[in-house]
Structures are given as structure tokens and as C-alpha cells.
Design a protein around this nucleic acid. Sequence first.
DNA 1: CTTTTTTGTTTACAAATGTAATCGAAATTT
DNA 2: AAATTTCGATTACATTTGTAAACAAAAAAG
Lengths: 150, 150
Amino acid sequence: MVNEMESKISAAEWEVMRVVWAQDKVTSKEIIDVLQQKKDWKPATTKTFIGRLVKKGILHTEEEGRKFLYSSAVNESDFINSTLDETFEHICNKDVGNAIVNLLSNATLSFKDIDKIEKVIEMKKKEAVEEIPCNCVPGQCRCNNCSSGH
Amino acid sequence: MVNEMESKISAAEWEVMRVVWAQDKVTSKEIIDVLQQKKDWKPATTKTFIGRLVKKGILHTEEEGRKFLYSSAVNESDFINSTLDETFEHICNKDVGNAIVNLLSNATLSFKDIDKIEKVIEMKKKEAVEEIPCNCVPGQCRCNNCSSGH
DNA sequence: CTTTTTTGTTTACAAATGTAATCGAAATTT
DNA sequence: AAATTTCGATTACATTTGTAAACAAAAAAG
């Protein structure tokens, strides 16, 4: 898993990371070109983000002559998962299911995806509960309104 | 749905919103108390966030004597969904299924949740595809590496 | 061998965010 | 009525983020 600490990257930095993840090792020029296309960023802008990612330790550098080859210190899937987990920390456990249902509704899925999902659901069935315990602090969720004796 | 524009709130502001969502109408004092507990924020800090949310039009105010009753201009579920959608915009369509599988693995689900998920999956099955078309720009995803003729 | 280009580094600067103190008017307490 | 508390509004200030120009050293081109 990605260390939660080092995974703090901004939306703009994420764009840079996607280019790196797509290639394992890239030069700044490649990143700059892709993002000039996609985001219309000036080379200087992209350079700033690259620099910040290196400073944060999320990009590794390997000297190749006088320039660098950049590579990611974190795995993309891990990063995606921990980003999503972070979002779910703002949500009551009771609402997680609905959020996922919504994601599923909006997603384009392959047969393979559906297989995998069905498998997880089979497992989840075994540990499913009647009522999910609310994990919110009193005052941040209706579930706790009464039990918290306010 | 939440207007994508007005839904731009920070992590700290989200904490405030959760208190508001939990009650429909709240006074600043209630918000301040809850977040003093949960986040150890000074009253002034919470007030800042409330003020910013009002300015952004995400919190509505209703005068009640010389003070205010705050209420949310956006629905919590809608907000959660559009936040998640935003995250998924950083992910190749091909990877969405896996991300969801991961979320499911980590989630605690109720029988009702599972029912709902199974229903969506039944529908999704009908429109499932063999191969999900990659929606990334060339250079930001391995899928496009070859077809983009670089 | 000079000129130009490339590429990493430094500097710039506004907006957003996190965190909070202060201030002033109204309300409550004494 | 005077003192105190409450609460919204204003001000403060450091950090992060978005966006980019300028600079310097090295490499490539002419």
C-alpha cells in the first residue's frame, strides 16, 4: 500500500503522475508534451509540478547524461485506492453501499469486471450485516442524533 | 445533481457540511461544538469555514433574531457522488471496475446494500462489454501507447 | 567555435486552504 | 445599568496549489 503520507498530491500533480505511470520511465520532455496537449500547460508549468513531485519523493530520478529519467515511487492502483479510501473517510459507513451503487450505475463495466464484482459480493454476503454500525461522531450524522443523548 | 461548480469544497469545509447535513438547520454554536470535539478546532477556525461556505453559496442562512440558522444548499448524497465522479475522472475507464472491486472489498455492507448492488449488476450485465474503450489521452495510459503511434 | 536549444533550478505571484485572533454590536447575566 | 458572553465580520498569516517567466549549464546545431 501507499504510505498515506507520501500520497498527498494535487489534481495537477496527478496529471503528471498519469504520464509517468503510463511509461515507467519518462523524460521531462515527454511529460511536458503530453500535458501541453491535454491541459495546454506551458512547459514551465509542468516543470514546476515535476519538481514538486520529486521534492515530495513521489517521483524518483535517474540521471541519464545531463537529464533525468523520472519514475514513480508509488503504484497507480494503490494510489487510486488510497485516494478513494480517503474520500470514504468523509462518509458514514452506512452510506458507503449507496455510494458504491452509484458508482456502479455510472460505470462502463466489462464482463470480467462483473465477474470480479460478483465474486467479491459472494464473499461479502457471508459477512454482511443487518444494520451497519454508524462510525460518525455525534453531531455529524443523523444515525447518532438520538443515541448520543444530545 | 449538484452543480459541479458550487461543489468545490475543501476537506475542512466538508467537516462543517457534515454537521449541517446531519441536522438540516444548525446554529454556528452547534457546528463549533461538534468540531471542537472532533477536530479540536478553535471556534474562530470553524467560523472561518462557515463564512467561506456561505460566501461560496453552499450554506444558506436564515436569520433567527440576531443570529443565523445555517442549512445546506446541496444534497449530501449528490455531493458525495460528484466528488467520487471527480476522482474517477483521473482514472482510465478500464480501471474503474478494479477500483470499485477494491472499494467493495474494504466495505462493510448490509444485506440491503448487497441486494441493491446485485440489482445494479444485473442491469450492468446487459450492457457489459468485452473490452472497455480506453478514454485516456495518448501518453497518459498504457492502453493508448501503441494506438497513438508514438 | 559561436549560436541556439534543451533541461533542470530558482524566483514570482495570485488564489485557495488551514488555523486563528480581534473587533463590534447585540444579548445575557449580575 | 454595568459587566460579560455570544456571534457574525474583519483581519492575519503560513502553506499549498496553479500558473509561469527567468536563469544557467550543458548539449546540439550551424
